[in-house]
């Protein structure tokens, strides 16, 4: 299965694992299924998925409530092991 979540962001499901790639940040990550659905629901709230991905490997300063909310979610995902960061 292959999805394009939005421009330049791709998702592929391989043997039940969710692989996401952002051509904007050149990051490839494995998402836990739970994380995927949470991210999907965040996307429906018009959050930027690629911005989300870019937060994985950097300490970019977040501005505004939306980004703070996303950062909170991401930190929580990483702590729970929903998200593995590779590159």
């Amino acid at each position: 299965m292959f999805y394009i979540l939005q421009d330049n962001v791709y998702l592929r499901i391989l043997e039940g694992e969710y692989l996401a790639y952002s051509a904007l940040t050149n990051e490839t990550i494995i998402l836990d299924e739970t994380a995927f659905y949470l991210l999907e629901s965040l996307k429906n709230e018009k959050c930027c998925f690629s911005s989300l991905l870019s937060l994985f490997s950097s300490d970019k300063a977040s501005r505004g409530d939306t980004k703070n909310l996303l950062k909170f979610f991401l930190e929580d995902f990483i702590k729970r092991g929903f998200v593995r960061v590779y590159c």
Binding site: L14, E15, E17, L19, T28, I30, Y86, C87
Partner: peptide, 17 residues
Amino acid sequence: SSAESVLKLAGNSFNYN
């Protein structure tokens, strides 16, 4: 796993990005 294999291959690619 396939997903891990993709990540490892990406790390060994010259022009993936």
